[in-house]
Design a protein around this nucleic acid. Sequence first.
DNA 1: AACTATACTGAGGACGTCTCAGCTTGGATG
DNA 2: CATCCAAGCTGAGACGTCCTCAGTATAGTT
Lengths: 198, 198
Amino acid sequence: MTTGTPHIAQRPRRADGRRNYDAILAAARKAFEADGSEASLENIAAQAGVAIGTLYRHFPTRASLVEAATRDGLADLVAHAERLASCPDPLRALSEWMEQAVRHFSTFRGLVGILAQSMYDEGTPSHAMCSAMHHGGADLLRAAQAAGRVRADLTADELFDLLSGAAWVREQSLPDRDGSPRFLRLALEGITARDRES
Amino acid sequence: MTTGTPHIAQRPRRADGRRNYDAILAAARKAFEADGSEASLENIAAQAGVAIGTLYRHFPTRASLVEAATRDGLADLVAHAERLASCPDPLRALSEWMEQAVRHFSTFRGLVGILAQSMYDEGTPSHAMCSAMHHGGADLLRAAQAAGRVRADLTADELFDLLSGAAWVREQSLPDRDGSPRFLRLALEGITARDRES
DNA sequence: AACTATACTGAGGACGTCTCAGCTTGGATG
DNA sequence: CATCCAAGCTGAGACGTCCTCAGTATAGTT
């Protein structure tokens, strides 16, 4: 899906509609957590005590359900970026935000892939949120670069590649071995400014 | 699948069996290239001019088909590591191998995920090849570390996390925007030895 | 109480995975 | 060359999932 209006699920008008909408969302969060973004929609509907058609009424695509299920968490992330923008130590702000971003990107298996797609595809439910994240991250990056703490030639796109990579490694890892903290530390070493000899 | 003998497809005994085996493999490579590792097996069988049961006879699981389809390429990678081990510039050897590894890991969408799983799960068709790659990469890493060119505290597991991350970014990228070369350069900056001030 | 926009239901078509009972045949054997 | 059988092939069918839509129910308004 490259074109078309992204469907951002909106709260239904009728009381029973809102009840079901919320129940589906709750069931979806649980199912995504357990089975990843490819969790069975029929099962989600059943868990929510609703027929499959009702799920599709509220969330016409899987992506729209994922978007709704992750909207709040990602909004938090954007808000946090804004708060950190005024931090006196911009490198610390950036690195702290990166850690939080990786955590959010890997809320459940498959999410980071959806977000990575949405980042550059406007016809996608999560595109708006991804765009907001992009701005938030870019601001923190610019600040750290202005302070001479991060190499000037790093772009925001590249930063998000690193974040996505770290999140993907995290979602792949078995519960006991999370490679992402170390990954992020190495990435940070790679992007911080240093005196070049040659 | 965590336990059980990994199925390594072996060349069938009879001539018709070998013919079909090869046809299926050829069709699978084409289909994986086009549709990723989740390509329809029924379609692959049809393209190979074979009934679905025949495909399952030779490749009882999707993972076993992926393994067979990628075996040669990954064997090349292992062989290349052995050749590079005698290179006078061990950092250059390592970085060259890393580039090649990322290319192979992202032969088609979904492959890097399968390989990442196989790396630490012995009950998996690709585990043997992954293990060989792990050794090859670890040797190059050790050599670069012995020469003082790469930070001593980097483990082979961490190196593979970086490689996988880069490959994942590459497989996500649209054809025109491949973030992996830059990703790899940044990673390399992160892992090379440097004089620490503090 | 009547009305209607909103919402719900669930059967059904399309497609995918995987199995297995029955059929076919390559190649070995005398 | 005729026989034989292990290796191989077939495709219907059970099952799970996605997604649609014609028919039905009801919340909220008048």
